[in-house]
Design a protein around this nucleic acid. Structure first.
Lengths: 235, 235
DNA sequence: CGCCAGCTTGAATCTACTCAAATCTTGTGG
DNA sequence: CCACAAGATTTGAGTAGATTCAAGCTGGCG
């Protein structure tokens, strides 16, 4: 009845956390137990609202979400994307307040994140996940501040592919990517019209193809070198 | 011999951490003890280097620093500023790797951050500090992605004043601010020429004055309303 | 006194935006 | 299965904001 509702719905989360820190039996068991109480939210639903307390850390199982900052005039900035297997709203505080709103971009399936105290490997994976979140946030700031529209686009696709490979959802530079050009525009701080035009250039240079919800990277070396001219981090 | 070396050099850090969570005697004692082993670094010195392990979490006592991302062609993005009383390099991991380089913008005085396990109030203040760091990082991404040059400038000055008030270094909308226009340009993703021009406009509108290392906000309401037209967060 | 870093200003250029219209997709109801 | 509506993408034309290059100005310091 639902393509995303299959017996291995815990796969991305387990794959990702296991890649961050080899999980022991207790950890995988805790994940499976948490997944058994998963629930679904429709596209557009707010998962966390800025300024409101966070009830529980969550684990995203299927679908995509995004952390947003909203503006009066209808503009919005996507601060980062949240992919299957990602944690959201996990803080150290007693009464954490969400620093940004999280919205489901597609229909999503989530569950409460299992308590990391059941396994040191799970706690370690959570710590790695937090560190990655921070690194991606920093990367986003650098992208928005310094890269051209063409570079921002290439850089974002490289990051997304890398992250999807971590959760086992991408192979051979190919993955499904349920983003519209408007969402990409909101993430990269450009107009959707300019995303369309710039995407045309990238396609013309045969770096990648992107359409019908699928992204295929044809030439990752060329993509990296399009950035390497500037970014010391991408050789 | 050194203007920054006065008996109250622990003041900003104590003021800030105490504002985040009312400190108990153990916490203030631990801070004073840590401050007694402070040391100094010249402007331009790297405090943390991206990709290298972080030996200890540090506490910035005097001077300003910045988290940077560097690019091949000499460009750099200042991801955020680190002000007196701020923590840097505090992670949950066993072997944390710095996700970005931290550079001293002025001569700075730092010490190892006291171990939060000595006091629950100190641990709580650290958690608050981390949460604020994340919020400022998110704010920076939204700024770079959505605001115009004029708005970015106003927004940044408001944030810096707010942060300096937290550490007790600003009163009545007045503070010292040791940033050059080039540094501001690196933080806001614009050219230094355009910072100069835009700053001229802001001054002409009598919102603030900035020069000789001092920032004075003349009309914070007008500054906020220059953003309120767009940003839902600034009434 | 001259140097150097930082700031300001002008002119030309370019990137990315807005507005607008046409086309293509997708989902829905008849 | 087709028709229609709504959303998404593409393309063109004109414009605005920001950049680069360049020249001059200012103030601190050896």
């Amino acid at each position: 009845m639902n393509g995303q509702l299959n017996p291995s719905q815990s796969f991305p989360a387990r794959h990702r956390l296991d890649a961050l820190c080899k999980l022991d039996a207790m950890a995988t068991q805790a994940i499976d137990q948490a997944v058994s109480r998963a629930f679904e939210l429709p596209a557009g639903r707010e998962v966390l609202v800025e300024g409101e307390p966070i009830a529980h850390a969550m684990l995203l199982l299927c679908g995509w979400a995004a952390r947003m900052k909203y503006f009066h005039d209808g503009r919005r900035q996507i601060v980062n994307f949240i992919l299957p297997g990602d944690l959201l709203g996990h803080c150290q505080q007693d009464q954490p307040i969400a620093p940004s709103t999280v919205v489901a971009l597609t229909k999503v399936r989530v569950c409460r994140a299992p308590d990391p105290s059941v396994s040191p490997t799970l706690a370690s994976a959570y710590a790695m996940s937090r560190a990655l979140d921070e690194a991606y946030l920093i990367a986003q700031a650098a992208r928005l501040g310094q890269l051209s529209a063409y570079e921002r686009l290439v850089d974002l696709f490289l990051e997304l592919m890398e992250r999807l490979e971590l959760s086992g959802e991408a192979q051979n530079g190919r993955c499904s990517l349920p983003l519209t050009q408007v969402m990409i525009a909101d993430a990269l701080g450009m107009s959707s019209v300019h995303v369309s035009r710039t995407l045309g250039q990238v396609r013309q240079n045969k770096l990648l193809s992107f359409g019908a919800g699928e992204l295929v990277l044809h030439d990752r070396l060329a993509m990296a070198s399009a950035l390497a001219r500037r970014d010391v981090l991408c050789q």
